[in-house]
């Protein structure tokens, strides 16, 4: 039976987990994007533009209350799109907003942010004073991070990744760049599987590596080996591209068709953002 403490410190196990986490995240996102739901029914271009508008609004607003209303809208959209709220909250609220909270924790106190005290306490002879400006600033920072992360995660969960990358063309990004991004994304699946296989093989042969120097050599050798295998592969990929009619000028298929409801949704998004900006200005 494996010792959980050992597992936590085992770099082989952690490398396998990193690769698996990527594959799981990508597969889960595609699963939700293929479901029937409100955001999935929209044209990815309109979906992306509306979410970018929400994101810019969340980043620009100076009121935690108004940003919270955008976060609430995000949760409503997630529900309408068939995303399990518990899973969505776990994914968006656990790591990044908690990390942000950790960063802003010192700013709560009077020694960093002086101002009107709202609460004080004594611990082992030290007095801590939480101030109003410190609390307001910390709340604004964490709410903004939570809303921004939630918006981006919801967009990536409800839009097929291949379509989301194709949308980059709408913003005038050159086709070669979009082609590179799309190809890279496909390679990522392959590489993540490769890493998982390599480390599973290493684990089955050496078990747990006791000395860090030995472990570092294993990792470096595997990075070098991954690079060698992938560069050899690029020649095969180029040949495959040629056999499919690639002439040096990339052409991406576009199957986007705007419907009246897409325009209606975009209008709603613009109205919501304009309203929030107006409220933010008058507050």
């Amino acid at each position: 039976m494996s010792n959980p403490l050992h597992k936590k410190h085992d770099f082989i196990e952690r490398s396998i987990l990193s690769a698996l986490a990527f594959l799981k995240d990508a597969t889960l996102s595609e699963e939700y994007a293929n479901r029937k739901g409100f955001l999935q029914s929209l044209d990815p271009r309109f979906n992306t533009i509306s979410f970018l508008a929400f994101l810019v609004t969340a980043v620009s607003l100076k009121s935690a209350l108004l940003i919270s209303s955008l976060y609430l809208l995000c949760l409503i959209l997630a529900t309408l799109s068939g995303i399990p709220i518990r899973k969505f909250l776990l994914r968006t609220l656990i790591f990044i907003p908690l990390f942000s909270l950790f960063i802003v924790l010192p700013t709560l106190f009077s020694f960093v942010t002086p101002g009107e005290p709202v609460w004080s306490f004594h611990v082992v002879g030290i007095t801590g004073i939480i101030t109003r400006p410190g609390l307001d600033g910390a709340v604004l920072f964490v709410v903004r991070v939570a809303a921004s992360v939630s918006l981006v995660v919801l967009l990536s969960m409800t839009t097929r990744h291949s379509e989301l990358l194709k949308v980059l063309r709408v913003f005038g990004i050159p086709q070669v760049f979009v082609l590179t991004v799309s190809m890279s994304y496909r390679y990522l699946y392959l590489f993540a599987t490769m890493i998982e296989n390599i480390f599973t093989a290493v684990k089955s042969r050496v078990g747990v590596v006791s000395h860090h120097r030995h472990g570092q050599n294993i990792v470096a050798w595997n990075i070098a080996n991954t690079w060698n295998r992938t560069t050899q592969m690029s020649e095969d990929v180029y040949m495959a591209m040629l056999s499919r009619g690639y002439t040096g000028e990339p052409r991406l298929l576009s199957a986007f068709h705007a419907k009246p409801q897409d325009w209606l949704w975009l209008l709603c998004a613009v109205v919501i953002c304009a309203f929030l900006f107006y409220k933010g200005y008058t507050l």
Partner: peptide, 16 residues
């Protein structure tokens, strides 16, 4: 494209 994917996956390697 492979270089881009490679720079992404390097972060999956945990170094003891």
């Amino acid at each position: 494209a492979i270089g881009a994917a490679f720079s992404f996956v390097i972060m999956m390697f945990n170094v003891p």
